[in-house]
């Protein structure tokens, strides 16, 4: 039943004078009082609200939010503050509102509603801005970790990620292989056929390496005509096999109808040495491969 409350201290003052919605529901969430804010602001007629469930005020998703968040909070804590929901106004439009509510011992709920349309607009702008920033961050991250020419991971990113893989190998007790790949006579290619041709070879090698790796492998351009690969969880036989695969894949690239060859320095490790030491050993092996005729893999 609707009740007009008299405020004792000031004559002729009723909740209808406030610029916010007051609503009372009984233990069955049935509306027993609503002030005139609902008709003034939301075009919902008070006499039509009385006797209906407060659930009927809200949008579908707001009802779900009420059931999973607002109601349990009221039962548990006795009140809730500043919850943003949406209701359907008398014209069938969605209106954002802020709700605070308190439940008494008889399970009556005293609701206060505020129109939050402008605040919601701000929220939406903030959410959009956050999305844009997240997207931009992703692009920047990718740019700062990628080698522009080949599209592979760059040296900086390799140096960040490789130590984690090495630690994992040590922790879980498996070995990994590190390969340093150097294109044979790359300077001749540049000098004889020009830098554009050199770049083409680097690009193609990049795409061959991309297709070569497993998802867990780390493949990077290390600088100039050098590439570096870290293959986790591998034994020496498989590492040798993979090295052969690399030579075969790379020989598909041709310059002046002659297959490109590479020298590879390999190092199999159980993770007990750090990245610098491991790389330095693979580099030693590469040096030996270069000095013993090129177009081959030497393991440290």
């Amino acid at each position: 039943m609707a009740t007009k409350y008299q405020f004792d201290c000031v004559e002729n003052v009723t909740p209808d004078l406030f610029q916010s919605g007051f609503l009372i529901t009984d233990e069955n969430r049935c509306i027993i009082y609503a002030n005139s804010y609902f008709s003034d602001e939301f075009n919902l007629l008070t006499e039509e609200l009385l006797g209906t469930s407060s659930d009927g005020l809200f949008t579908h998703s707001s009802r779900i939010f009420c059931e999973s968040y607002l109601m349990p909070l009221l039962v548990h804590e006795g009140n809730c503050e500043e919850m943003q929901l949406a209701l359907i106004d008398g014209d069938g439009d969605r209106v954002s509102i802020i709700v605070s509510a308190r439940m008494d011992r008889k399970k009556r709920i005293y609701w206060s509603f505020f129109n939050a349309s402008k605040r919601d607009q701000l929220y939406n702008e903030l959410i959009e801005t956050r999305k844009e920033l997240e997207a931009q961050t992703k692009v920047l991250q990718s740019l700062s970790s990628t080698d522009e020419l080949t599209g592979l991971t760059n040296r900086r990113e390799f140096n960040l990620r490789a130590p984690q893989l090495i630690k994992q190998a040590k922790r879980y007790g498996y070995s990994f292989a590190l390969f340093i790949i150097d294109i044979d006579h790359f300077k001749n290619i540049n000098d004889t056929f020009g830098h554009l041709e050199g770049d083409r070879v680097l690009k193609e090698l990049g795409s061959q390496l991309k297709s070569f790796g497993r998802e867990t492998d780390l493949v990077a351009r290390f600088g100039g005509e050098e590439f570096i690969l870290l293959l986790p969880n591998i034994n020496i036989e498989d590492a040798k096999f993979q090295a052969l695969r690399l030579h075969s894949l790379i020989s598909r690239i041709q310059v002046n109808q002659i297959p490109v060859t590479v020298s590879i320095g390999g190092m199999l490790s159980d993770g007990s040495q750090n990245l610098r030491d491991t790389t330095s050993k693979a580099d030693d092996a590469l040096y030996r491969a270069k000095n013993s005729g090129r177009n081959k893999t030497v393991f440290y």
């Binding site: 949008t59 579908h60 998703s61 707001s62 779900i64 939010f65 968040y69 919850m83 943003q84 929901l85 949406a86 969605r94 919601d120 929220y123 939406n124 959410i127």
Partner: peptide
């Protein structure tokens, strides 16, 4: 559903 996710964001 977009509104539901929006409510999660806003609250």
């Amino acid at each position: 559903l977009e509104e539901l996710l929006g409510l999660m964001d806003k609250n």
